[in-house]
Amino acid sequence: MAVQVLIPPALQTLTSGEASVSLEANSIDGLLAALEERFPGFGGRICDESGKLRRFLNLYVNSEDIRFLDNQATALADGDEVSIVPAVAGG
């Protein structure tokens, strides 16, 4: 289950400058764990102490907001693209 993750510039310091990384994961929760394992400290940046995504970050699976899917339990399939986008924009 390889998925492609788009990393915003703010988090690229944790990925050695990589804007896109490929990881194995079956769900968003699994992906967050995989990100932390590959890039120690990543999880703590994008999640709060309880492991919930910070409220000012949006995650999209193939352009769909995970809040329209299954939130952090959203299943991932081979070839899915996940983008991490700061929420504070627009209007």
Partner: peptide
Amino acid sequence: NYDQVNRLCSEVANTHGWGFVNINLR
């Protein structure tokens, strides 16, 4: 819809060095 436009623009703002009035200039 607008929210999809907004997400796209957040990504373009990351890569194109433009001044987005309601993103990096918000």
